[in-house]
Design a protein around this nucleic acid. Structure first.
Lengths: 210, 210
DNA sequence: ACCTGAACACCGTTCAAGT
DNA sequence: ACCTGAACACCGTTCAAGT
């Protein structure tokens, strides 16, 4: 066979197809052989571009995390900073729930990830929070985001869906149930964020009055 | 070979050994063949006791979830109910961080799981929370617990550990770092729970005054 | 530099057969 | 009822070889 002048694969093309497979069939639905097949190539070819499957997944994770917005920590309102960060973070995970387990284990590119963590921490400290509190607020906001995302992720494993589909044979109903669960998740997240930030504000006042 | 009078395996013995393997080597470190080997048996023998690996894992998950305490929802203080629930829930996950991804996808025994959910929801409604809020409080408390547990889980994947070990060759230091991270997680969780419940109390007052 | 064929060392699970 | 040996249909990854 004649060698084509241009490479068959690129990292971007591999990522794109891999993410589509994960979205459609979950993390276990992605295999290097099947991915290669969809890209019209043999499995070992992928290893010319990514050293391992894990490296590929974390590269995708980095791509997704780039939409997380920490810009509001530049302003004077620390609560607004947390809110924008938490919402954009959650949105990034909710767009690809099957990727959540990978995203939870941390992105591969440490520099950009550390830069984000530094923006959060720096913003909180500039707003007058003691460093230790800044760390804890950053950590617990992450808990809220990750936990909410895990909830959407795990919904993919519920066999309840089948039960409901049997009970209500109209597909609309099943979709409505899924939509309703997503809505409860969204509302619960917003309520939790409100209560959490409200409680922190009170804590902040107590700290200042001391 | 003579057939022994007593079965070689039991569900309890399989669960015990499987959980030990998951604790020691992670979820990927558990294989039906290796597990069978440790139990002095061939892999297919396990299928006389569990239909699939997934069923085994979720049975272990159920066992772990049985330590979650929702008894304080019987009292009059809804916040105490949430606190006891959240803490015992988190403790159950923190004891076996590698099981978190399984525990996050929900236990298999729906009845006991639903009974717990009902105790939470019922306790909140009896305390005067509108049903919709009871649902959201239950959901967001779970987010906090699962998110905090995922954080411990993902720490197992950090290659940072190696970096630090290189920098500080004394193993004590590495252990201290891990302990420190666990401590930050514990403190952050408690702070988040305080702020969250504080914010909810304020919200509750506003709802009552309307 | 990029891709392939063949191979290694694994998986979960099934199934006929043994006791 | 419980366990085994052999087999099926997969995995991720390596490596020598080709262009």
């Amino acid at each position: 066979m004649p060698r084509p002048s241009t490479p068959l694969l690129s990292r971007a093309r591999i990522r794109e197809r891999a993410l589509a497979m994960v979205d459609a069939e979950g993390l276990t639905g992605l295999s290097m052989r099947k991915l290669a097949g969809e890209l019209g190539v043999q499995a070992p070819s992928l290893y010319s571009h990514y050293r391992t499957k894990d490296e590929l997944l974390h590269d995708i994770a980095d791509e997704l995390m780039s939409t997380v917005d920490v810009s509001d920590f530049a302003g004077t309102d620390w609560a607004a900073g947390v809110r924008t960060w938490a919402r954009s973070y959650r949105a990034a995970l909710a767009a690809h729930p099957n990727m959540v387990p990978v995203l939870a284990t941390g992105p591969a590119r440490r520099e950009t990830s550390l830069a984000r963590a530094d923006a959060v921490h720096g913003g909180l400290v500039r707003a007058g929070w003691p460093p230790r509190y800044a760390t804890m607020i950053g950590a617990s906001t992450k808990y809220l985001v990750l936990g909410a995302a895990m909830s959407s992720f795990s919904r993919g494993f519920e066999d309840d869906v089948q039960v409901y589909v049997d009970r209500y044979p109209h597909l609309d109903q099943a979709h409505r149930l899924r939509d309703h669960a997503d809505e409860i998740d969204a509302d619960s997240f917003e309520m939790a964020l409100d209560a959490f930030l409200d409680g922190l504000s009170a804590m902040r006042t107590r700290l200042a009055d001391r």
